[in-house]
């Protein structure tokens, strides 16, 4: 018996919905990775790192340069760029942000804002304002899952983001440096008196934040493009995720990232692609009104 036309339309709608959901989850996982870096630094230094977006842009250019100049595959570049950006973040906090802010939180804020301007303009000078992308053979590969066609790079990004989040969680829960990070986030004096070098811990945290961005950049580049301002769009979304999940909360960033990814994808489906981000900011305002501490945040 042939399908009734109405039934068929319903099936099609469900497929579209499912595909939007899957796409949202996959994008959301990368958002979560970017938010993870932001929330980690916030949790310890109690300030928003305004250089987060510019650092992401720099990481994306690094992926592009590695691919275009040296022929390094973006997934291989993870192994090189992650330690490199960890070292970069460490050095920035230890030798630039820390000394320049003289222990005042508002100064950290301004220094990171200044850094973001410097980085963005340096990238602009070096790469011009052209939008660039990389060509990889698997860029348009898809995985078929029932009636769903999932782009391979996005599937990889989804699982890799979870892997990084799990590694980060393990680091925070089970290693001395992770415990030291959590200790410093709440009790600096007690940490110093226990023998924990607070400045080093700050710098490691910053390094981890930058390392998350390097991984995110490697996962994004096979399907995305880069120009000197691209990081800002991501960080605005990441900031919403951090607020939604609870400032400083690692599981909050993860769940928040997935939620935001799905919301963006669904509002893109129903309101049109160009209005996809409206849903995100509606959620942002709703969270601020109803649950300002976020899903996993400690109540003030």
């Amino acid at each position: 018996m042939p399908f009734q036309p109405g039934c068929r339309r319903l099936m099609l709608q469900i497929d579209i919905l499912l595909s939007a959901l899957a796409n949202g989850l996959m994008t959301g996982a990368v958002y979560a990775l970017i938010a993870l870096g932001l929330t980690l630094v916030y949790g310890v230094l109690h300030v928003i790192n305004f250089a987060h977006g510019a650092t992401l842009t720099a990481a994306m250019f690094a992926v592009w340069a590695a691919h275009d100049g040296l022929g390094i595959d973006p997934y291989v570049a993870i192994l090189i760029l992650t330690p490199l950006f960890f070292a970069l973040g460490y050095a920035l906090q230890r030798f630039v942000i820390g000394p320049a802010s003289h222990g005042s939180d508002s100064n950290i804020l301004l220094v990171t804002l200044g850094l973001s301007i410097v980085i963005e303009n340096a990238l602009l000078a070096a790469f011009r304002s052209d939008t660039r992308s990389i060509d990889v053979p698997y860029g348009f590969s898809v995985i078929e899952l029932g009636n769903l066609f999932l782009p391979l790079p996005k599937v990889i990004a989804f699982f890799a983001s979870f892997l990084v989040a799990a590694l980060l969680w393990g680091l925070m829960a089970h290693t001395d440096i992770g415990k030291a990070i959590r200790a410093v986030s709440r009790e600096k004096t007690g940490a110093a008196l226990s023998g924990i070098p607070v400045e080093h811990v700050y710098a490691v945290t910053f390094g981890l934040g930058a390392a998350c961005l390097a991984v995110a950049a490697c996962l994004l580049m096979p399907t995305f493009l880069v120009n000197p301002r691209v990081g800002n769009a991501f960080v605005l979304v990441a900031f919403t995720i951090v607020v939604l999940g609870g400032m400083g909360s690692v599981p909050g960033a993860l769940i928040g990232g997935l939620i935001i990814g799905v919301v963006e994808s669904l509002s893109g489906l129903y309101f049109g692609e160009s209005l996809g981000q409206i849903g995100i900011f509606l959620i942002f305002i709703l969270v601020l009104l109803v649950r300002p501490a976020g899903l996993f945040g400690a109540r003030a």
Partner: peptide
Amino acid sequence: VHVPEGRKIFPNMSVRENLELGSYRR
């Protein structure tokens, strides 16, 4: 080693983790 006034323990961490961090450096 200085045990500070007001304790300055790590309130967000477990008792065991607090103790473990006492031997972070020594």
